[in-house]
């Protein structure tokens, strides 16, 4: 066998390992979750109760699905105007200027801060503010977690939309200017519509990030196993409940946590798949 053939085989088999890892993950999660699914069936995602008391054990992911959606949607809604403005700052108003380079680097650094550091900052800085405002359960809750999450996902939404906005061809903008439009009118009626799928994809990917963030949320959401009544109730997300309860878990509880991980895996996979698909179509 010649060396070229061997090279090809090595390349294929190593790449195949990636498929194997992903497949193995799905297999392990599914087989780990089976005891829980067998015990609870559909009520695993419909019943409202997560109760570890022995003898009356009942595990349902619903409170955490609700917590995840509430924090992530809150985060997205807060991040939306901020990231939109920042991407216009970077990709349109101050494109290719020094100030944009500095601001862009700072946005990138936001993505570099470890989740646990965000959690600390949220705990020691944001939470006391929430307490002063009389919001939340001692400042903990869905909103506080969503607020810190919004800062964490802004870089993901911003970097993609900024790039796409900067790529809108100049001659389109000039055509709009030549009709007597102001920069605001050009931006909102021509530039942003032309970049809309990229901007949209950026928000989807950012949302996917928010769904799976663990540490900062764990430190701020208040960790209760109930469906949050409102934005200022405490709760748990799918990720934070795994982090919180994994240590003491075995048997049915561990299986239920694995089932939650499986759900999280599938949901983030779908969200990311959709985001990437939109980007690909846009190219």
């Amino acid at each position: 066998m010649n060396s070229d053939k061997i090279t090809k085989i090595v390349l294929v088999s190593v790449s195949f390992l990636i498929l194997l890892i992903a497949g193995g993950m799905v297999f392990s999660l599914v087989s780990g979750a089976i005891p829980s699914f067998k015990e609870f069936g559909f009520s695993f995602i419909t019943s409202k109760e997560w109760n570890p008391t022995e003898g009356r054990e009942n595990y349902s992911a619903l409170p955490f699905i609700a917590g995840t959606l509430m924090t992530s949607v809150t985060a997205l809604l807060i991040a939306l105007p901020l990231s939109f403005a920042t991407s216009l700052f970077l990709g349109e108003y101050y494109r290719n200027t020094k100030i944009a380079t500095i601001l862009g680097t700072m946005v990138d650094l936001l993505a570099g801060i470890p989740s646990i550091v965000y959690g600390l900052w949220g705990f020691y800085v944001l939470r006391p503010i929430m307490v002063d405002l009389g919001l939340g359960n001692q400042g903990f809750g869905v909103f506080t977690a969503g607020l810190i999450l919004s800062i964490m996902i802004i870089p993901y939404a911003t970097s993609l939309s900024n790039e796409i906005i900067a790529m809108v061809p100049n001659d389109l903008k000039e055509a709009a200017y030549s009709l007597g439009a102001t920069r605001l009118e050009v931006t909102l009626s021509v530039t942003v519509p032309a970049a809309r799928s990229g901007i949209f994809a950026g928000y989807i990917l950012a949302f996917g990030r928010a769904l799976g963030e663990t540490m900062a949320v764990t430190m701020l959401i208040g960790n209760s196993n109930l469906i949050p009544d409102n934005l200022f109730s405490s709760g748990n997300t799918m990720a934070s409940v795994i982090a919180n309860q994994f240590g003491e878990a075995d048997g049915l509880k561990l299986s239920s946590l694995i089932a939650i991980a499986l759900l999280l895996f599938v949901i983030t996979g779908i969200i990311n798949g959709v985001g990437k698909y939109i980007i690909k179509k846009f190219d």
Partner: peptide
């Protein structure tokens, strides 16, 4: 492989820990 790798990139780190 590219798509699967992209999906892996989006998997929350806590899930990877569990795996």
């Amino acid at each position: 492989v590219r798509n699967v790798s992209d999906i892996l990139q989006g998997v929350p780190s806590i899930v990877l820990g569990l795996i």
